[in-house]
Amino acid sequence: MATPKEMMTTWDKIQPGAVLPSFEDPEKKIRSKFNSYNYKVADWRVEKPVFNRDLCIDCDFCWVSCPDSCFIVEEVENKRGKKQAKIVGINYNLCKGCAVCVEVCPTPIKSLLMFPEFVDNDEALKQWPKKD
């Protein structure tokens, strides 16, 4: 796993003690180039989970079980004005394709299914199993 070229600085430019800042702009929470959020592990996958928003009930089992912090969450208000999470997608840079999310998905027809990496997501959604 070689380091990207732009990160390969020389001995005279590295930070003393190998100390890594998490944020480039801590106030605005802009993550630094050193933050693994900006790293890609996509090439670990052979299959990817595809998310079907139409079937999702926002139980967030996938979010809490994901070891790679992949689920993209939007904060919305429910009918009673309480904040709650809405799953809106998967960060494919960070997903390693472990399929835990698919296993824990409780909807009668799963809202998450594994597809081969080369299948387009729209195509995958078309292939989704239907209620019989």
């Binding site: 070689a2 380091t3 390969m8 020389t10 001995w11 590295i14 003690g17 190998a18 100390v19 890594l20 800042p21 998490s22 944020f23 801590p26 050193f34």
Partner: peptide
């Protein structure tokens, strides 16, 4: 402004540090 101390530097970095 969180900092990470004690990262692992393999052959690409250890020598420089």
């Amino acid at each position: 402004n969180p900092q990470t101390y004690g990262a692992q530097t393999e052959e690409e970095w250890h020598f420089e540090f």
